[in-house]
Design a protein around this nucleic acid. Structure first.
Lengths: 103, 103
DNA sequence: TTGACGCGTCGGGATTTTCCGACGTATGGT
DNA sequence: ACCATACGTCGGAAAATCCCGACGCGTCAA
């Protein structure tokens, strides 16, 4: 049931949700309004994000405000880190090549 | 047809494949041997990685050596970057709290 | 040339994901 | 007390994902 972070991020709607939550906590209808999706669909995406511990809910009256919980994203960065060296190296050699041709 | 990077990374087998390729180019049977999966299954995972431009193939005789192409991973890091601030901040306040309690 | 190897891909089954309308529950306003 | 609002979740349809055996093609070794 607790989905992993990578699967949670594989859906563009869920990524947009996280981006929205960067600007502060938001209620479900508010979040849903930016998609051409039914509210239940958005609600289910939020459930996936909850299982991945990427959001937290705070009830306020009859609304539920969702908060970003960014910590699990660190796992992705950690996974990425050993690869960083590779693309930086390639970017450097590309730059060197361009310098040669355009001194 | 060209799958996006996030979807490509959502599968643990594909992530392991990329990790293996960090140590250098490898042939398909060699890659497949580390999974309890049929070779066609691994071959199809490699196809997904190809469509995401995360690997490149180099034919050598009757084998195909797959190379890591790390550049598209930079997209993930770029997406991650605006979030980094959030989890670092939280880690800092946790550290401060621990310092207070254990001076 | 013949046979074995290394691989991609296809057809199809099983499972998962994504989505929706319908319904139930709790809260707020009147 | 009554009705509208905000939301979660359920049943089920449609689509996507994942996996396998079967097949075909090129390559190597004898």
């Amino acid at each position: 049931m607790p989905t992993d972070v990578f699967s949670a991020l594989s859906n563009p709607v869920r990524r947009k949700l996280l981006e929205s939550l960067r600007e502060g906590p938001r209620a479900v209808n508010d979040l849903a309004s930016q998609f051409s999706l039914s509210r239940p669909a958005v609600s289910e995406h939020l459930q996936v994000l909850r299982h991945a511990h990427l959001v937290r809910e705070e009830p306020r009256g009859r609304q539920r405000y969702y908060h970003l919980v960014a910590e699990p994203l660190a796992q992705v960065q950690e996974w990425l880190h050993p690869f960083e060296h590779y693309w930086r190296e390639r970017m450097r050699s590309l730059r060197d090549l361009l310098d040669e041709e355009n001194p």
